[in-house]
Design a protein around this nucleic acid. Structure first.
Ligand SMILES: [Mn+2]
Ligand SMILES: [Mn+2]
Ligand SMILES: [Mn+2]
Ligand SMILES: [Mn+2]
Lengths: 222, 222
DNA sequence: ACAAATTTTTAGACCAGTCTAAATTTTTAA
DNA sequence: TTAAAAATTTAGACTGGTCTAAAAATTTGT
């Protein structure tokens, strides 16, 4: 039973939404917002996905991925993130340019391709944005990262990823001289607006708003 | 104006057919045979392509690519062949496994991607089957190769490509120990069935039917 | 030259994926 | 507890791409 590009995109959206809002069930409007389709269109597609046993769906009650749907979604995510690594590591794209291209490449169908790509890239565990890449069996390496905005004052940290993938945020981060793996020390903290002053790699000083900090993932320096 | 995957496949088919049959005009049935669609389906599509000024089309008279159509077709071919090089050179696929995957990858839309890929691969001039790769401006490097079946007796040649891309032919060639760039000397020639005995790299001896030889491209050793 | 064969187009249908407008169900909150 | 608001589904329509069956145009062979 063939799964179309469009269906793959719905499964990926449902997967992401079901993790974003901790609750298990994802609503029609959430999907409609995310994919920028009308709610009526989403309802149609949900019926088709349920027909194919990729989701469980009861009228007006929201949806959940079945095991089959989950596996399919994770495979698409694996492909997306591996292609992003390829684009950045091998083709020298910057991290703000790769998402749109990976949106296309994630739909290429060939199990052999994706395993050979994984080998070629050295079986990376994280993509250029710090997102974990599921292995061939669908397992994610557990991230022990958390938001910089929740870190202890004066903490010494390592930049592990970002949660906002927009071009403007990614460019702002690069232009500020920040990249994954950098050391980061919180030097000062403003109680009024939760902005902070950080020191990067013991060299540069940078001021971050709470909004920016909330989209930076860090882990404790071990 | 967006050109769909399907439209790209039609343009590529028309391009190939117009070169295969020297005549300029390509017929509905030729396209229908090649793409394994019904003639009625092809007629529909021809109207759409004509609407978009990608082909010129007069009822019952066959079709020709416009300049715009030609450029589009060549770009798809460029992408197809570059991805084939990637799959063989970087991911270590064998030359009989890459065509189907490249059929999918050729439709990825990103000019920057294709130019970065070209750089990454070292701007190759030929794909794994010896087919020339058009450059970014659409120019093919001229091949001075010809069919082994038309070579002079006792000639000393270099294997430059193949014209049959089927898995079975490609595997037969590899299994026989032949690959692009190998030296080849015609040792013996059978007038009855045009079969030949060749020596490869001054080492192995191989018998080739006329059918096999006709699908091997060679160039003169310089 | 013209009837038969072949090629091509037209007509009408279907599916996937989308939309708008209207109907229905669920949720909210007075 | 019930009316209003919000969310969701249904109904009906459209496009791109495909098909089969039938009609029309072209080509072929005697
Ligand atoms: Mn996608
Ligand atoms: Mn990513
Ligand atoms: Mn194609
Ligand atoms: Mn090729």
């Amino acid at each position: 039973m063939e799964i179309s590009f469009t269906e793959e995109n719905y499964l990926k959206a449902i997967y992401a939404l079901s993790h974003f809002y901790e609750a298990g069930e994802v609503t029609t409007n959430q999907i409609s917002d995310r994919l920028k389709n009308k709610a009526a269109t989403v309802t149609d597609m949900l019926k088709r996905l349920a027909e194919k046993k990729l989701i469980s769906y009861k009228r007006y009650q929201g949806v959940k991925l079945t095991e089959k749907g989950r596996i399919t979604a994770i495979k698409v995510i694996r492909k997306h993130r591996l292609w992003e690594v390829f684009l950045v590591e091998k083709l020298k794209f910057s991290w703000d340019e790769v998402h749109e291209i990976a949106e296309q490449m994630e739909h290429i169908r060939s199990d052999e391709l994706i395993e050979k790509l994984d080998d070629f890239l050295g079986k990376p565990k994280f993509d250029p944005h710090g997102d974990p890449i599921p292995d061939a069996s669908g397992k994610f390496s557990t991230q022990k990262s958390f938001s910089l905005s929740l870190a202890n004052r004066k903490a010494s940290l390592i930049i592990a990823g970002v949660t906002d993938h927009s071009k403007s945020f990614l460019q702002y981060i690069s232009n500020s001289g920040l990249k994954l793996g950098d050391n980061l020390k919180i030097e000062d903290w403003n109680d009024y607006d939760q902005s902070m002053k950080i020191k990067i790699n013991n060299k540069h000083i940078l001021f971050l708003s709470n909004k920016a900090a909330s989209n930076i993932l860090v882990e404790n320096k071990k």
